[in-house]
Simulated scan of single mutants.
Amino acid sequence: LADEINRASPKTQSALLEVMEESRVTVDGQSYSVGNPFMVIATQNPIEQAGTYRLPEAQLDRFLMKTTLGYPDHEATMRILVTGGSRPRSTALPAVISGQQVAEMAQLAGSVHIEASVFDYIARLVEATRSADDVRLGVSVRGALALVRASRVWAAAVGRHFVTPDDVKILAIPCLAHRLILDPEAEFSGLQAVDVMAKVIGQVPPPTERAES
């Protein structure tokens, strides 16, 4: 868990590339596995830029998805206000699931079926980002693979053993938008990658035939 990862130095960020891609670290020529399951969760402050470093494209491409929490709603804010001052801040949090169970769930999600037409839809979405207006660098094949994996997990989570085009649509922005590198002029004008990705989704037609069980 990396809190405010954009405050880490470029050298520290580059050290994460190997472990995020290969689940291992190398020290003095010796490689060490970090085990399975392994994942990196990171936060960053999108507003304050002083003392921060922009994440390199190679590192952004290794994050499965990016999401924005935003502000809590009124009910959540009330709970925070009521319990925030008196809640015990224990560091001994109980485990709710074992690592073995997580690995088994990941294996199960990997067996979720994807029709050829849905694979084609994912490929067309990714390819469209590379020729989209205001985009300097589109989504790589790694991004397409991330969307495939996330779509399988999403389908399994809702109790289906097949992926639909709607699953892909729901996850396209969280999985792909952060991988887009916009032209400097577009960034200066305030254009956001999520807006570009939303436009691409609207321009690429989904397959007419849905996957069937």
Rank of each mutant, 00 (worst) to 15 (best):
L145G: 04
L93W: 05
F63A: 10
D61E: 07
I114S: 03
A150G: 01
H161F: 07
I80Y: 15
A150F: 01
E75I: 10
V82W: 10
R62P: 11
V153W: 01
D134W: 02
V126K: 00
Q101G: 14
A50M: 14
S117I: 05
E48M: 13
Q44P: 11
A106F: 07
D73T: 09
A109L: 11
S131W: 04
Q59A: 05
V135W: 05
I80P: 07
M105H: 07
M78E: 07
P94I: 02
R89W: 03
L60K: 08
P56D: 08
V153D: 00
I122P: 00
A116K: 06
V126A: 02
Q44K: 07
M65C: 15
V148Q: 07
A155P: 02
M65W: 13
L60M: 14
A103I: 06
S140E: 08
P94H: 01
A157N: 09
L125Q: 00
Y53K: 12
E75P: 03
Y71I: 04
R87Q: 14
K66Q: 10
H161Y: 10
H161R: 06
A106Y: 06
L60D: 07
A146M: 09
Y71G: 09
Q101I: 15
S140D: 09
Q100H: 11
R54F: 13
V112D: 00
G51E: 12
R142Y: 02
L64T: 11
Q107M: 08
S86F: 04
S117K: 07
G159P: 15
A106N: 08
T129A: 05
G99M: 10
H74K: 15
D73K: 04
S111E: 11
G70V: 04
S86E: 14
G51C: 07
V135G: 03
E127Y: 01
Q59V: 12
V102T: 08
E75C: 10
A109T: 13
L81P: 12
Y121N: 03
A128P: 09
E57G: 09
E57S: 11
A50N: 15
G51F: 10
L60I: 13
R89L: 07
I97S: 10
L64R: 03
R152N: 03
A92V: 15
T52S: 14
A146P: 03
A156V: 14
Q107R: 10
Q100T: 11
A50S: 12
R54V: 14
R87P: 00
V158T: 14
L147S: 01
L69N: 06
L147E: 01
H161N: 09
A103L: 14
V153P: 02
L125E: 00
V112A: 00
E48P: 03
T91F: 11
I80E: 12
A150Y: 01
S98W: 11
A132W: 02
A103R: 12
R142M: 02
G70I: 04
A92R: 12
G84A: 13
D133H: 13
A156H: 09
P88I: 14
A116G: 04
P88H: 15
A157M: 15
M65Q: 12
A50Y: 14
A103E: 11
T77Y: 06
T77H: 08
